[in-house]
Design a protein around this nucleic acid. Structure first.
Length: 483
RNA sequence: GCGGAAGUAGCUCAAUUGGUAGAGCGAUAGCCUUCCAAGCUAUAGGUUGCGAGUUCGAGACUCGUCUUCCGCUCCA
């Protein structure tokens, strides 16, 4: 049995070996922190995405979905704070090899000085930062003899920019300067905010209501490792819930609970989850927490729930000069309508790729099936049936005597309703184990008795138990289990 | 980015002190089989990560380079 540190590696290998996840551009040695989903991985991912989408939009009557473009007007990212807050200059100490954010380094130094001197230092720093004068910043650090806390030296590299956002050029002709630069979105949320009015008006949405979206987002990471856990290109499943100002506390609590219900509905025990409250809040939030799952590499964030106040809509109103207001006809305790306001927002944001990783981690199991007579083992992915890439494997016991024909008939009957897999090669046990490895919940075997009385053996993945049922009941049994 | 380790078939690994690259599993095709992997036969698959160098001769030795893993660093 793999221990936890090996389990992560084992899952990665398994994913590659059975067509779930491959390193991107592998024939060219791969591309760091980018991965491709293979034939089963893409099914699994799609099933998770669909389940989330249905749960959020179909089961919550006041939530609708959109699909905004990845390209957005560059001003979007000024309004959201991404341009200013996430392009931090960095500097490395050549002796200790330690890397610092320049502002953190100078701030730490300022704290050691008398108050007035420290403030003067920070004011000067802000001037350099505002001008993006990196050369000046370096000299400034050297003049003030700011040292590395590890090496104690002043031996610094040049100041370099860390860019969170990927940028590209808009327009067919390159080299026309910064005017043509657009970013690949670093989060999907802004696509919802810029469409707030469109959706609210055309959908006649009344507060409280939500807008959901699933889509790709792109971020440069300083250290990009840990498989699909931290990727440069990743997929988010987000919902922004618009509410009346002052009610954010109660809705924040509501969505914490509601989202946890979703997680538990995957059949994952509550003990594998925990909430982690943010102490240091991001620039847009007045409350925030993560839902963390106990991965083989420890508890890690899968989903974030943030109370974003009216930060985003207010900023978009300021930058776009368009009113981001909602007129609330409902009356308060005094009998007066609430009137015009910029809604507050509760955000739920879950990483789809991380959820795939979570579902894989939970499902992956190496089992020792040895008996006194014989050594035996299997690897099984115990997915919830509704998430399994393949729902049913149809296996004629032998490829003769008319058994394949019966199997093909069943295949034709079922394949329009859910994904089936047909196989007549190899011994039956081998075929069962191959299906275990990709997490297929059911296998049916057609034998000679099937010809006589129309029954088949259905074999259950987790228990490995077999039962005899009518071939006519197979489809319904599978359908019930994947609802 | 730094330090350490490792790159040989799809996977796991061999290959005497430098002398023509092999095996098991897997895959494919067939045979045999009445229900839980490792029965039989055949076949395919490798410029030993890449590039130089030393040598009569390099998978092995030297240098460079790329990638991966582990640790450090960084991270809303």
């Amino acid at each position: 049995m793999a221990n936890d540190s090996n389990k992560f590696q084992a899952i990665i290998s398994h994913c590659k070996e059975y067509g779930f996840i491959f390193p991107s551009s592998e024939i060219y040695d791969g591309l760091s922190a980018v991965y491709d989903y293979g034939q089963y991985g893409s099914e699994l991912k799609k099933n998770i995405r669909d389940y989330w989408w249905k749960w959020m939009t179909q089961l919550h009557e006041n939530i609708v979905g959109i699909d905004a473009a990845i390209f957005m007007h560059p001003t979007t990212w000024k309004a959201s704070g991404h341009v200013d807050n996430f392009s931090d200059p960095m500097i490395d100490n050549k002796d200790s090899k330690k890397r610092y954010r320049v502002d953190h380094l100078i701030e730490a130094h300022a704290e050691t000085l008398p108050k007035e001197e420290g403030e003067a230092l920070l004011a000067k720093m802000d001037q350099f930062l505002a001008k993006e004068d990196f050369g000046g910043l370096k000299s400034f650090i050297e003049e003030n003899k700011i040292k590395c806390s590890v090496s104690g030296t002043c031996n610094w590299t040049d100041v370099r920019q860390f860019n969170l956002m990927f940028s590209t050029e808009f327009g067919a002709v390159s080299g026309e300067g910064d005017d043509n630069m657009v970013y690949l979105r670093p989060e999907t949320a802004q696509g919802i905010f810029v469409n707030f009015l469109n959706v609210q008006k055309t959908g006649r949405m009344k507060i409280p209501f939500g807008i959901a979206q699933v889509g790709k987002a792109f971020r440069n990471e300083i250290v990009a490792r840990q498989f699909i856990f931290r990727m440069r290109e990743f997929e988010q499943m987000e919902m922004q819930f618009f509410i009346r100002p002052g009610t954010q506390k109660q809705w924040y609590e509501y969505w914490k609970e509601e989202r946890m219900k979703w997680h538990l509905s995957l059949g994952i025990p509550a003990s594998r989850y925990r909430f982690h409250d943010h102490v240091k809040l991001a620039h847009y939030a007045d409350a925030a927490c993560d839902i963390e799952y106990d991965f083989p590499i420890g508890f890690k964030e899968v989903e974030g729930i943030h109370s974003r106040t009216d930060f985003d809509l207010r900023n978009h109103q300021e930058y776009s000069k368009k009113k981001m207001q909602y007129f609330d006809n409902e009356t308060d305790e005094a009998g007066k309508p609430y009137g015009n306001y910029i809604p507050y927002v509760i955000e739920t944001s879950i990483g789809l790729d991380r959820t795939v990783m979570m579902v894989l981690s939970e499902a992956y199991e190496e089992q020792d099936l040895s008996s006194p007579e014989k050594q035996d083992s299997r690897v099984v992915l115990k997915f919830p049936p509704k998430l399994s890439p393949v729902k049913l494997a149809i296996l004629p016991l032998m490829k003769k005597d008319g058994l394949p024909e019966i199997a093909r008939q069943l295949m034709d009957e079922c394949k329009a309703s859910f994904r089936c897999f047909y196989e007549e090669k190899d011994t039956i046990g081998k075929r069962y184990r191959r299906q275990d490895a990709i997490g297929t919940p059911f296998c049916v075997t057609i034998d000679h008795q099937s010809k006589e009385d129309g029954t088949v053996t259905i074999r259950h993945r987790d228990s490995m138990l077999q039962e005899r049922i009518s071939i006519r009941d197979v489809k319904e049994l599978v359908e019930k289990s994947i609802q």
